[in-house]
């Protein structure tokens, strides 16, 4: 398996095969990151493509002060957020909203929508209802195995905020299924 430094050097030289390898290696990460920010399935592939084109354009400037995966995640995050701004979709669901927890747990639409599903599928659907920043942090931590510092670097959030969002997001999900189970009994 070719290491990231060698791969990046070959991509910077314009090697098509190397770039295809790089895309295959990181397409899952980019799809997860973009998919957690953008809900519109039609735009997802196009944004992922833009992310990799940006990677290709800028890779000669990348100096490995961070991991390649963190750098690509940063580009993916910014590209997705810029897309929301361009479409004038506000990040209205910022997790700093104090009433968020009350609203999330009290939202009965989600429960009605998922009542036929298994418990794990229920949680997966609930994740989609979480604020964007929570979804991004959860995905990078649990699916991409990034640590707090790497998530902070990719998203521009302080490490403390990342830690706090992770804790609150999991707690919200737990409280929601607790409420859900309480109604089922």
């Amino acid at each position: 398996m070719i290491d990231d430094r060698a791969l990046a050097a070959r991509v910077a030289e314009g090697n098509k095969h190397a770039f295809e390898l790089l895309i295959r290696k990181y397409e899952r990460l980019v799809a997860h990151m973009v998919g957690r920010v953008i809900n519109n399935a039609e735009d997802l592939e196009e944004i992922c493509q833009d992310v990799f084109l940006k990677v290709y354009e800028k890779i000669s400037e990348f100096n490995f002060q961070s991991k390649l995966s963190t750098w690509i995640a940063t580009i993916a995050y910014r590209q997705a957020i810029n897309h929301l701004r361009k479409k004038k979709i506000e990040l209205a669901d910022l997790p700093d909203d104090e009433k968020l927890e009350e609203r999330f747990i009290a939202d009965t639409n989600t429960v009605e929508l998922i009542e036929e599903d298994e418990m794990e599928s229920v949680v997966i659907k609930l994740i989609e209802k979480l604020p964007t920043h929570y979804r991004v942090v959860l995905t990078l931590y649990h699916l991409e195995n990034m640590n707090y510092a790497e998530i902070g670097e990719a998203t521009g959030m302080p490490e403390g905020t990342v830690k706090n969002y992770l804790f609150r997001a999991r707690q919200l999900l737990k409280e929601k299924i607790k409420t859900y189970l309480g109604k089922e009994v």
Binding site: G14, N15, K16, H17, F19, E20, I23, R24, E27, A31, H32, G35, R36, A41, L44, E45, C48, Q49, F52, L53, Y56, E120, S121, V123, I124, I127, L138, T139, H142, L143, R170, L173
Partner: peptide
């Protein structure tokens, strides 16, 4: 356990080839 599950969205299998060809 649910947080370890893959997200639903996946890129098509020819995605890498198409993007690499377009970029280079």
């Amino acid at each position: 356990s649910a947080l370890k599950q893959e997200a639903g969205f996946k890129l098509p299998s020819d995605f890498a080839g198409r993007v690499a060809a377009a970029a280079t």
